[in-house]
Amino acid sequence: MEYFFEILLGGLTRGSIYALIALGYTMVYGIIGLINFAHGEVYMIGAFTALIAASVLTLMGWNQVAIIVIASVVAVIYSSCYGFTIEKLAYKPLRRAPRLSALISAIGMSLFLQNYVLLAQTSNFLPFPNLIPEFEFLKPYQHMISSSEIVIIGTTAVVMVLLGIMIKCTKIGKAMRATAQDRDMAMLVGIDVNRVISVTFVVGSATAALGGVLVASHVGQINFYMGFIVGIKAFVAAVLGGIGSIPGAVLGGLVLGWTESFFTGYVSSDYEDVFAFLFLVFILIFRPAGILGRSETEKV
């Protein structure tokens, strides 16, 4: 039974990581119907920024709590700038172009950023310091869950709730929902659509950067390619939960994480991905719009 809980917690952590990244995918898709493939790279840039900031702060001799807070804030701000710029450079000029053009532009942006970091930084794996302190109260349960895992799970839950509140209750949230429903109509009633889209990208990138910092600190290493696989998995999670839906992204992430972990734990890790994606196919056969997605008829 203990084994079951260990696997459950491991899957919860993994699922939370996917979910945190999937939130950005799903928000952007919800507003402008674009799959932002560069999202995984923003996550990677967040991790690199945090590493640089943390190294500098460690040299200056700050204490650990200050380091993690400041490094995360720096990473979030820097990555948000990237998100903002990517949208302005790569997607905005293509807003009236066919969807496929924006998709290709997104893939191009992803490759560009990977190679940019490869050249500007390094192709090697870099050690990432363990920023999250070991909590005293967790000592007896350390064999089941570590403090970094708790922080990841907690952060994902908090971010999901905050995003939900933002979209439901704030003015910008209302504008986002309006833009998602009908962009032209939103413009007619006086919503600055460009600003809404920019805010979406900034918020999405901020969650990605937060994910980057936490995951890098959890696994202890980063390199320029780290965003790719996580990006793909998070994209799958977003589709699984119903792309465009915030709770759906989190649910999709958790379902994917648990599927992988339980399959590895009870069957074999050899076919972990095969099984996870088979499961995805089954869900999409019975619920084509994802678990929480509403099926919409395409407007002609």
Partner: peptide
């Protein structure tokens, strides 16, 4: 005797399996 997935975010499930 198992193959793991290279590049995965974490290997906690495999690690738990080793422990068990």
């Amino acid at each position: 005797y198992e193959g793991i997935t290279p590049g995965a975010v974490d290997y906690s499930a495999v690690v738990q399996k080793i422990k068990r």
